[in-house]
């Protein structure tokens, strides 16, 4: 139970970082923290104590293995996270080129 709770704390740290920080790069870091906390939570759901990796190999039988499905899903989620982070980083760099600052309070051409 504690580990799940810690995941939630990590998630909240990421959310806090996105909401409170004014630097674009810090916001991106916040997004990364949030994504990884969700991934970690997903992995922990499939974990059981004493379980081992669900990899089938020729010379041994596996009796007590962890749930492989969340691991496959988290791999996909990580790839998606990579794509999003790369795209946002590229946009942030372009924003810096245009505005000359990473401070979100100074990037205000749009209103309303």
């Amino acid at each position: 139970m504690t580990v799940y709770f810690l995941c939630l704390v990590l998630f909240c740290i990421g959310l806090y970082c996105i909401v409170r920080k004014r630097n674009l790069i810090k916001i991106i870091i916040g997004i990364a923290i949030m994504e990884y906390s969700v991934n970690l939570f997903f992995i922990l759901i499939g974990y059981k104590i004493g379980g081992r990796a669900p990899i089938h190999s020729s010379d041994q039988t596996i009796l007590n293995m962890v749930d492989p499905l969340p691991q496959a899903l988290v791999l996909t989620a990580i790839v998606i996270g990579l794509a999003v982070t790369a795209l946002i980083a590229a946009i942030a760099i372009r924003v810096y080129e245009k505005y000359g600052t990473f401070d979100i309070t100074k990037i205000r051409k749009l209103k309303g």
Partner: peptide, 9 residues
């Protein structure tokens, strides 16, 4: 993008 990613999370 930031809002969308929060939603996806």
């Amino acid at each position: 993008a930031v809002m969308g990613t929060v939603a996806s999370s």
